[in-house]
Simulated scan of single mutants.
Amino acid sequence: MNEHWSIGDLAKASGVTIRTLYYYDEIGLVGASERTASGHRRYTADDVRRLYRVRALTQLGLSLEDVARVLARGTSDLAALRDLLHAQLADLEVRARQVNELSRRVQGLVAQLDGETMPEPARFLETLELTAQLYGGLSAEQRDALAERRAELGDDTVDAMRSEWLTIFRELKGHLAAGTPADDPEVGALATRWQRIAASLRTGRLHIDRQVEASSEAMWARHGDRIGRHLSDQVDWLEPGDMAAIVAYLQRARS
């Protein structure tokens, strides 16, 4: 209980960057309870427990504003910490099921390739979709809501949406190659079809849909090039760099 950590030591031990710790201090989320005579921060055991709560809550999908409201109700209550850990365990169990499902799908792709058969693009898209859910920063609540919506739509409908998605992107690539302006009515019609598909996949829960959209945009910003390269390896009419160009073209058409 008498241990103390400098900001550098805490960053190294927790995996949280020094910049993030400074930001948490700035917004009043996690601060150092003590200072040295020269003014350097010293984090206490209570500060470490608070940091754990903050990181666990953000991993469950709460915004920093929501985290602050939760912590304002008290951080030393054993029951509250127990509830948080139960929620974290539930989230990990969901992720474990998704890892098993993702493993099963990748094994299926490998089996097809071992049999000298190229899997259909839809199989790769299904795997990418699950990968995005697992690594795209979605909370358990968001993943469950998306799963419920897909179950409501049914496998046939979801497969038809994936097929139409590929058709739309192929037609957009044709217009882009032909130099068709983004505000052309035909391109606008394709953008409208794309928006209808996106709208059909929404859960109807506004806060979840906004969070999922933000997570998807962030994932594309971070990994768009890698996703595009992966798809170009599997879809014969896609070349490296096509996806980024098509997405940018679609965004111009939507605006």
Rank of each mutant, 00 (worst) to 15 (best):
D91I: 03
D91P: 02
D91T: 07
D91H: 15
L92H: 12
L92K: 13
E93Y: 01
E93R: 14
E93P: 00
V94G: 09
V94L: 12
A96P: 02
A96R: 15
A96E: 15
R97P: 00
R97Y: 03
Q98W: 07
Q98V: 04
Q98F: 02
Q98Y: 07
V99W: 08
V99T: 09
N100F: 04
E101Q: 14
E101D: 14
E101Y: 02
E101R: 15
E101L: 12
L102D: 01
L102K: 04
L102C: 01
S103A: 11
S103T: 10
R104A: 11
R104L: 04
R105I: 06
R105H: 03
V106H: 04
V106G: 00
V106Q: 06
V106W: 12
Q107D: 13
Q107H: 12
Q107V: 05
Q107P: 00
Q107T: 07
G108S: 10
G108A: 12
L109Y: 02
L109T: 01
V110H: 01
V110W: 01
V110M: 11
A111W: 06
A111G: 02
A111Q: 10
A111K: 11
A111L: 13
Q112Y: 07
Q112D: 05
Q112S: 11
L113V: 15
L113T: 05
L113C: 06
L113E: 06
D114S: 11
G115Y: 08
G115K: 03
G115P: 03
G115L: 08
G115M: 09
E116W: 10
E116G: 01
T117L: 09
T117P: 00
T117W: 00
T117F: 01
M118Q: 04
M118S: 03
M118H: 06
P119N: 01
P119T: 01
P119W: 04
P119Y: 04
P121Y: 09
P121M: 08
P121W: 05
A122V: 14
R123I: 05
R123M: 09
R123K: 11
R123Q: 12
F124I: 10
L125C: 02
E126I: 08
T127L: 14
T127Y: 09
L128H: 10
L128N: 11
L128A: 09
L128G: 04
L128T: 07
E129I: 04
E129H: 14
L130V: 06
T131W: 09
T131H: 09
T131S: 13
T131A: 15
A132P: 00
A132K: 14
A132E: 13
Q133I: 05
Q133Y: 15
L134W: 10
L134K: 09
L134F: 07
Y135G: 15
Y135R: 13
Y135W: 13
Y135L: 14
